[in-house]
Computed example of a mutant assay.
Amino acid sequence: MTLLTYGRYCDEILTQTDALRAHLDGADLTATVPTCPDWTLRELAVHLGGAHRWVGEIVRTRAQDDVPEDRVPGGAGPAEDGPAALDAWLAEGASAVVAALREAGPDTGVWTWSWQRRTAFWARRVTHETVVHRADAALTAGAPYAVAPEVAADTVEEWLRIVSFAQENGDPEAAELRGGGRTLHLHATDVPDAEWLIELGEDRFTWRRTHEKATVALRAPLTDLMLVMNRRLLPTSERVEVLGDAELLDFWLARSSFG
């Protein structure tokens, strides 16, 4: 598996947003999100829609510096209350960021907080931000949740890269993900070759696609494996299997909990 194409990321932003909107349809928007307990379902939706508009503004204006959120048109949420206004606002924000990304193409230089200062970063990041928050919405609304295998695998790999970037830049939690030659094996049970080995080296951690014996192994269908790595599903769930040193998996998850 490799990176998705830029066009596929743009398509997925719309697909995942539409699916999230469907989860909200008829749901209790005042319900607390179990995986983000500081938010109600409506606040989760406003967070995501605001992120769409923020990135859209960065890309549209070719910003070379961070854009303050209070300078993003419509970023605070819909002007009117009610589920219909929220739904229309979400659809509008997703459409706008995708239009900006498609117009710019993947190689336009813009500000990002990351290792990559071009629009390709934002297409991938917005895709997976939406994928994961759709899981939050589905869980809250009691709706079924599924992601295409190539999207779920890329969500795993992008998150590993984000944690690595945090470690490289001195995040105190991520800094502890090293030492002792300990390893974690992620094994999707339903998709061939969807396996990763994370190695905690002396100075930093690395990962590669392989099947090897490890200190701890996490086995699950790929979507569930992705949800565990993004702390949306507990490793004690009956949907997953943990073999070996479960404390090492807990150690990893506790130190990749930022963002």
Rank of each mutant, 00 (worst) to 15 (best):
residue 201 G to E: 00
residue 166 A to R: 15
residue 139 L to K: 13
residue 172 P to L: 02
residue 197 L to D: 08
residue 157 E to H: 13
residue 196 W to V: 09
residue 202 E to T: 15
residue 139 L to E: 15
residue 149 P to I: 05
residue 151 V to E: 12
residue 126 V to Y: 01
residue 174 A to E: 06
residue 170 G to D: 03
residue 157 E to Q: 14
residue 199 E to N: 02
residue 126 V to P: 05
residue 157 E to T: 15
residue 185 H to K: 13
residue 184 L to S: 12
residue 162 I to E: 06
residue 159 W to R: 15
residue 166 A to D: 11
residue 160 L to Y: 04
residue 194 A to R: 14
residue 194 A to W: 11
residue 145 Y to M: 04
residue 174 A to C: 08
residue 178 R to P: 03
residue 148 A to W: 06
residue 168 E to H: 06
residue 192 P to M: 02
residue 192 P to C: 08
residue 177 L to D: 10
residue 161 R to W: 03
residue 149 P to M: 05
residue 149 P to W: 09
residue 176 E to C: 05
residue 204 R to D: 05
residue 165 F to K: 04
residue 166 A to V: 07
residue 187 H to M: 02
residue 195 E to I: 00
residue 177 L to M: 06
residue 149 P to L: 03
residue 195 E to S: 10
residue 144 P to S: 09
residue 186 L to F: 14
residue 148 A to C: 05
residue 155 T to S: 15
residue 167 Q to V: 05
residue 174 A to V: 07
residue 154 D to C: 06
residue 127 T to V: 11
residue 189 T to V: 04
residue 193 D to P: 08
residue 132 V to A: 04
residue 198 I to H: 01
residue 155 T to I: 01
residue 167 Q to I: 07
residue 168 E to V: 00
residue 163 V to W: 02
residue 187 H to V: 10
residue 204 R to W: 01
residue 137 A to V: 06
residue 192 P to E: 07
residue 130 T to V: 12
residue 202 E to A: 11
residue 139 L to N: 13
residue 161 R to N: 10
residue 160 L to W: 09
residue 183 T to Q: 11
residue 192 P to Q: 02
residue 161 R to H: 09
residue 194 A to Y: 09
residue 191 V to E: 14
residue 144 P to Q: 08
residue 159 W to M: 12
residue 189 T to F: 05
residue 181 G to Q: 05
residue 182 R to P: 09
residue 155 T to Q: 11
residue 183 T to H: 05
residue 170 G to M: 03
residue 194 A to M: 07
residue 131 V to G: 05
residue 148 A to H: 13
residue 164 S to C: 01
residue 166 A to W: 15
residue 199 E to A: 11
residue 198 I to E: 00
residue 128 H to V: 12
residue 137 A to Y: 01
residue 154 D to K: 06
residue 164 S to H: 14
residue 170 G to E: 01
residue 202 E to D: 15
residue 200 L to D: 12
residue 170 G to A: 04
residue 197 L to E: 09
residue 152 A to I: 14
residue 162 I to Q: 10
residue 156 V to T: 10
residue 130 T to S: 10
residue 145 Y to R: 07
residue 207 W to F: 12
residue 198 I to Y: 01
residue 180 G to V: 06
residue 146 A to L: 06
residue 129 E to D: 15
residue 142 G to A: 02
residue 197 L to S: 10
residue 197 L to H: 10
residue 204 R to V: 01
residue 169 N to E: 04
residue 175 A to L: 10
residue 168 E to Q: 14
residue 139 L to H: 15
residue 191 V to D: 08
residue 188 A to F: 02
residue 146 A to F: 03
residue 199 E to S: 11
residue 170 G to R: 08
residue 194 A to T: 15
residue 199 E to Q: 13
residue 189 T to M: 00
residue 180 G to H: 08
residue 170 G to L: 00
residue 190 D to V: 14
residue 183 T to K: 07
residue 165 F to V: 09
residue 167 Q to G: 08
residue 159 W to L: 14
residue 189 T to E: 09
residue 150 E to N: 12
residue 126 V to H: 03
residue 157 E to C: 02
residue 156 V to P: 12
residue 179 G to Q: 08
